[in-house]
Amino acid sequence: MPHKTFFAFILPSLIAMVLFIALPIVSVIVQSLHVEHARVLVEVESCQPFGGCTTETRVDTAAMAELRAEKPMGQFNGLGTYLNRGHLAVNEIGAILASNNGFGDIATRIYNLPFYKALSFTLVFCFVVTPLAMALGFAIALAVNALPKVTKGPVIFFSLLPMIITPLIGSLILYWMIQSNGIIGASLQHLFNDPTLSLRASPVLTWASLLFYGVWTNAPFSFVVFYAGLQTVPGDTLESAMIDGASRWERIRFVIIPHLAPLATFVALVQLMDNFRVFEPIVGFSAEANATSLSWLIFNDLSGDAKLFGSAGATSVLTIVGVIVLLMPVLIRTWQEFNHKVV
């Protein structure tokens, strides 16, 4: 296909991606280097007929508005936002490392810094939910594959629901059930005979319920992909494994799993990308006291009256760096394959 035709076809799509994905990334980087204007203060003397005169310090709103109109981004701050307490907290970490009471102390004190708190939940969510959801999905796929044909359709229908549901809505539905006055929460209180038991109160239980939600909503995707993969397992190989006396488990271990391995890489990649942006369940579970994520930090900076563009920008840039690190193995492999092909 000649270059001209190619670009004629792809141009609209390319323009959309450049304008609304590439440029915003640039805009985020520029924003992260700026910080809100310092408040312009004026001394105002107010005199009352009988009270004498007092001087007050006030924020000069007119001057502030002018300043904002002139430089909407705020003032240049360099890497200041990145290094402050709300982000990488370089000084605080230095202080913690300089004086501490052993490893446990370091860990708790670093965990109490907002960025590291969010980062640790995000990473735990990614690397716990992804493998668990894949294992569950694989187990469901094996089980559904063994079902009689009539039941397969309805089972697949119900299995798709947790995946297709809007994340915020799905998390609300689960949250209403595990609340202390919802069906699961109340039953747990009854079961453990502890009327104060609440999934929201303790950080461990909040994390556990968020991770449970993650597995619940991610497993169907692995299931569907693995189930489709199972249909393509070569019958001859399975049969010869059976003739060689391989047990059921050995057939799964040595025939089916190697056959599905490329699919598993794909599923892991997609789910890691999606879980890294975990956000809606935290809003749905109102879990921000015990668990926050990088996306939630950005959302929190931007919602509310004072929009902290600088802070949100810095967290966004750090998140994008995280995504690229996450994708690095894939990118390197594609790069090598591509070079290989050319040579």
Partner: peptide
């Protein structure tokens, strides 16, 4: 490949780039 990288961007990071413009 670029599309793959874009696909991985958390949407909220892009949103924080949109708001001000």
């Amino acid at each position: 490949i670029l599309a793959l990288v874009f696909r991985a961007m958390p949407h909220i990071t892009l949103v924080s780039g949109y708001l001000l413009p």
